[in-house]
Design a protein around this nucleic acid. Structure first.
Length: 787
DNA sequence: AGCACGCCGACT
DNA sequence: GTCGGCGTGCTC
């Protein structure tokens, strides 16, 4: 299912995408030609002639401006190949107008990687390059052109020497003393003269003027980029001492780093087993070798705590997070490309960091769904990282307490080396997990709430013992279901087929998919009765219940509603660490990565949220969430316990998570996946047809169905190894959320055990069936979202 | 993606 | 008789 098996599969296709269509003749002396790709869904490159004056400037990995399209409009594209083979085209060959970059902004390795992505994810190479290179790099944000002067070397001085004025003499002396090029204004300031004096020197041929692009002083990249060793916290400066488990897993990693070459590791370590120390040890080693490391973490983990652990022992660190300005991002990119950065920590897109000598890629929380990009190119950063490691011939270290089944299956096949850390550090036990059956939970006296008597008693005891509590409820808002008792009307988004959630703080009804917001109503909009009922539980209501039940304690909510401002995340976590907050309630945001030794109780308010979604991964997601949140308890010396409230206590993903039994869960779920021919045993593509006009979407879905059947028939008749059903098509069917953001959506699923066959079918269909106006056709390879 | 060429309805 | 609707296909 990962990139692992696929690169060479794809290469074996007959129609090579991304090659120019015209067949090239043998080389003819004289001309130079450039293949160019554009930020458009085009499946091949376009060949342009390079004029003599640009021959020295042109290069692979630089952007060029060329006339493109019917009107020959000036368009920017990426040069992906330079050759002197003349194309034997029937086309008129147009000419490159301009080379936009002085230096290549994409190196050879990234060129190959993006080409693979275009082929694998079925989009334009130019689209991939456009997505990979940050805007701040394309438009040189945070830099400016500057004019420098330097003394003319002795042998090139004019003869006879011109006379100079006293001010000119002073300026020249100053420049010679500095022994480096200075900006004209800089020199004028130092020599206490005007720029006119300097131009006089230029005119007389005593100094030489040249321009160069430099970073703007205010570009901001400097302060944060160069967080060098001095900045390390006390914790960071400590020597890393690995325990026995950590040393055991470190050994093969160290050997792979010493030997070099592609080597994928899956580090399976339970929560609290100290995976980070292993990462840090590996980083130190690679930096010592003079190479760079890319560390991918889920966006949500990019907190100062995480970052401070990396700071201080890894040379220069670049942290790429979503709040950077274009100029900052551009600054980092340039610093990475020029070798000034040794470690890059970032979310998904950091997998494209333009390092010079990459020595290792680390992916923390390898199983996280946020590594999958949900817009074109719809890549999975883990799979791209594996492919990058393979292309560059380096080790890759994927870590998780709950590995994705894709990675687990790869490990079982022998594609990845598994390294296990089954114990917590300092021999701390895994927390005891108690499953509370909500069907048999006695009704609490007073008004019923979300917190049953068992959980409430445990919370009281924990507060009495001065412990801290984390409560998970994976649903935002106050009431998740707003309906009329008289006529049955349900408040629904105006743009989507989804129920609205009431948010009390904002006093509005919100759609969690498209963001539509509307005022809440007292009277039913259909029957005008004052019989609206606000039901269903979200984090907002839970917080109110906690505040009523535990008036003496401070409860803080953490979800995307309360954490929208930058820094708020950090403020809350600091306050929690300092003991100013006793109860932290939130969505999955609080389930992952938090390390607070005083948390002795974790409560899961409703483990069944998300368990019954129409998605083949819902059991895996639920198991991961439960296992991860359980791991927040008992990380200190005081131990800890976990209470899981559920209506389905017998469900295996709940029982196995309560026993911290990942291996058994994986075994069971993989049997299920195999039986139903789901990934990782079969490759999957999901296609969505969407239109604002329902009939138009439905009509094109039918056209596609025919096209698919034809393409599948053809693929099967090419004599490929095709046992009974090499490719299966499901659909068209309405998406589980049929109308989203005013678009009516139909989807298909295409499954096959061969990625090559899957791609062949898709390529044929894409070439065959073009959507009409107002209809879009999206292809998602290895989909994660099935709604 | 844009943009032009191309065949069927309401206007001077 | 023309202006213009957007359907379809191409861009080196």
């Amino acid at each position: 299912m990962t990139a692992h098996d696929t690169l060479f599969d794809i290469e074996d296709e007959r129609d090579k995408p991304n090659e120019p269509r015209a067949v090239r003749a043998t080389r003819t002396p004289g001309g130079l030609f450039a293949d160019v790709v554009f930020d458009r869904p085009l499946d091949h490159a376009y060949t342009y002639a390079v004029p003599a004056e640009l021959v020295a400037k042109i290069g692979v990995g630089k952007r060029v401006e060329v006339p493109f399209g019917k009107g020959g409009k000036a368009t920017a594209g990426f040069c992906v190949r330079v050759t002197d083979d003349e194309p034997t085209s029937g086309y008129e060959i147009k000419t490159v107008t301009r080379v936009l970059d002085d230096d290549a902004i994409v190196d050879e390795h990234l060129m190959k990687l993006t080409r693979w992505m275009a082929d694998y994810y079925l989009c334009g190479w130019g689209q991939v390059l456009h997505a990979v290179v940050p805007a701040g790099v394309r438009d040189n944000a945070g830099t400016r052109m500057a004019s420098f002067v330097e003394p003319v070397p002795r042998e090139s001085l004019p003869n006879p020497l011109p006379t100079v004025t006293p001010q000119q003499k002073a300026a020249l002396d100053k420049l010679k003393k500095e022994n480096r090029p200075l900006e004209i204004l800089q020199l004028a300031r130092l020599a206490k003269c005007t720029a006119g004096v300097v131009s006089g020197l230029i005119k007389k041929g005593l100094v030489r003027k040249f321009s160069e692009r430099i970073e703007t002083e205010a570009s901001g990249a400097h302060e944060s980029a160069e967080s060098e060793n001095a900045q390390g916290t006390d914790e960071a400066r400590k020597e890393i001492e690995l325990n026995a488990d950590q040393l055991r897993v470190w050994k093969p990693i160290g050997e792979a780093l010493a030997a070099g070459g592609y080597h994928p590791f899956l580090l399976h370590g339970v929560t609290g087993s100290g995976k980070t120390e292993v990462y840090l040890r590996a980083i130190e080693e690679v930096v010592k070798q003079g190479k760079e490391v890319v560390v991918l973490v889920p966006e949500i983990s990019l907190t100062p705590q995480t970052i401070s652990r990396f700071q201080g022992r890894c040379g220069n660190l670049a942290v790429m997070h979503s709040h950077l300005t274009d100029a900052e991002r551009g600054g980092y990119w340039r610093r990475i490309a020029t070798g000034h950065i040794h470690v890059v920590v970032g979310a998904r897109s950091a997998v494209f960091a333009p390092t010079r000598k990459l020595g290792l890629i680390i992916i923390d929380e390898e199983h996280e769904n946020s590594f999958k990009q949900e817009s074109t190119p719809r890549y999975h950063a883990r799979d791209v990282a594996v492919m990058r490691a393979r292309l560059e011939g380096i080790p890759i270290l994927m870590g998780s307490a709950t590995p994705s089944l894709e990675s687990w299956a790869n490990a079982e096949k022998g594609n990845y080396t598994v390294l296990s850390m089954p114990n917590r550090v300092a021999s701390r036990p895994m927390p005891a997990v108690k499953v509370v059956d909500l069907r048999h939970e006695p009704k609490a006296p007073g008004k019923p709430g979300a917190i049953g008597p068992t959980l409430e008693a445990a919370m009281r005891q924990t507060l009495k013992d001065k412990g801290q509590i984390i409560l998970l409820l994976n649903r935002r808002g106050f009431s998740t279901h707003v309906h009329c008792e008289a006529c049955g009307y349900v408040a629904q988004c105006a743009n989507c087929d989804l129920a609205m959630t009431f948010h009390r703080t904002k006093n509005s009804l919100m759609c969690h998919y498209c963001g539509f917001e509307t005022a809440p109503f007292q009277k039913c909009p259909t029957c005008a009765q004052p019989s609206m009922r606000y039901q269903g539980l979200g984090t907002e209501k839970l917080q109110v219940e906690i505040e009523e039940k535990f008036p003496g304690s401070v409860c803080q909510r953490m979800d995307s509603d309360t954490m929208s401002k930058p820094g708020s995340h950090q403020r809350v976590l600091d306050a929690f660490r300092d003991g100013l907050i006793q109860i932290l309630v939130g969505t999955q945001m609080i389930a992952k990565g938090l390390d607070f030794p005083n948390v002795t109780l974790v409560g899961v308010v409703n483990a069944d949220v998300g368990l019954h979604l129409p998605d083949f991964r819902s059991a895996e997601r639920t198991f991961q969430l439960l296992a991860q949140v359980a791991g927040r308890a008992g990380r200190g010396t005081r131990g800890g316990q976990v209470l899981v409230q559920t209506f389905t206590p017998e469900h295996p993903c709940i029982t196995l998570a309560s026993h911290h039994n990942y291996n058994e869960f994986a075994k069971m779920e993989l049997v299920h996946r195999k039986l139903h021919k789901y990934p990782p045993y079969e490759r999957m593509a999901r296609m969505i047809v969407r239109s604002e006009k329902e009939e138009a979407a439905a009509a094109f879905a039918d056209v596609l169905a025919t096209a698919f059947k034809e393409a599948i028939r053809r693929a099967m008749s090419t004599g490929r190894p095709s046992p009974e059903a090499p490719v299966r098509l499901l659909g068209p069917a309405e998406c589980p959320v049929f109308r989203l953001n005013n678009f009516y959506r139909f989807h298909f699923q295409l499954q096959s055990d061969s990625s090559a066959v899957l791609h062949e079918v898709l390529r044929n269909v894409l070439a065959l069936a073009k959507p009409p106006h107002g209809v879009e056709f999206q292809v998602d390879i290895d989909p994660y979202s099935m709604l």
